[in-house]
Design a protein around this nucleic acid. Structure first.
Length: 260
DNA sequence: ATGCCTTGTCGCACAAGA
């Protein structure tokens, strides 16, 4: 069971690139972020032609998350509980039928939070608190759970080309680290770190300043697992090659293989 | 130094991203 996460930075601009990667990588389930489209504008047919069912939580112009699955999607949840006034489309959860039972998957686009002196930073921290509360309730189900997405958090110094350059940034602030650790401390496993402690493994390279050419990357896309999912983890890989393609997203796909 | 790209929006520049 191959499960991927990919911030595609616009589904319309990235459609052919995404289809090419899907045909080649053949993931069972894909969590997409930043589709930048309303549900009605999402080219679902193109993905259905490849055998995927599509679940969406779209938004006009910004944000927007999706889940593609070759297995049946039984139910979905759009948005995190805890703030009815939050209209940003950043969370989608699906229960997917697999041979061994049910697998719960979430596609997460955690707020960036910059600039940190604006209301965007407290929004990020509050969103992380809501995510933690919701995940805590999901863990009580004691089922395989995969929380996949763009977390906009650089977990550790070894996850960034130059920690000094990110000092003070919302992706690297102590408050962001504390919230991310609190989430992990519920009992989640960071898939990549369960498979390797190698430094300088990145999932994002800025379009600007030759970041890709200089390998000035950061690791901010993560697949976090419940204990029942972590027990099934076989491998975790980053498809770095996708960043060198024409018209690339600034993020690349990261995926896990589960023994399920 | 928030820019040096890239995307989407009814755009003829701008916000947002990270």
């Amino acid at each position: 069971m191959k499960i991927a996460s990919w911030n595609i930075n616009g589904v319309k601009a990235r459609l052919e690139t995404a289809l090419t990667w899907l045909a080649q990588a053949e993931p069972d389930i894909v969590c997409l972020q930043e589709i930048k489209s309303i549900d009605e504008g999402f080219p679902s047919e193109r993905f259905e032609e490849l055998g995927y069912s599509v679940a969406l939580n779209g938004q006009k112009g910004f944000n927007g998350v999706a889940i593609l699955s070759k297995h049946t999607i039984d139910e979905t949840r759009k948005g995190l509980p805890g703030d009815p006034s939050d209209e940003q489309a950043r969370y989608l959860e699906a229960v997917i039928s697999i041979e061994s039972g049910a697998l719960r998957v979430a596609s997460i686009y955690l707020p960036n939070g910059n600039p940190t002196d604006s209301d965007k930073f407290p929004y990020k921290l509050a969103w992380m608190e809501r995510l933690k509360d919701h995940v805590q309730s999901l863990l009580e189900l004691e089922e395989p759970l995969v929380l996949a997405g763009d977390y906009n958090v650089i977990p550790q110094p070894e996850d960034v080309y130059s920690p000094d350059a990110w000092e003070g940034d919302a992706l690297y602030r102590p408050e962001s680290h504390a919230k991310f650790r609190a989430l992990l401390n519920l009992g989640l496993t960071d898939s990549l770190r369960a498979c390797t402690n190698a430094p300088n493994l990145y999932t994002f390279w800025d379009y600007q300043a030759g970041a890709w050419q200089k390998n000035n990357g950061i690791r901010i896309d993560h697949l976090l697992l419940s204990p029942q999912a972590a027990d099934l983890l076989r491998s975790c890989e980053i498809d770095k090659f996708a960043r060198s393609w024409e018209k690339p997203s600034d993020h690349v796909p990261i995926w896990i293989d589960l023994a399920a």
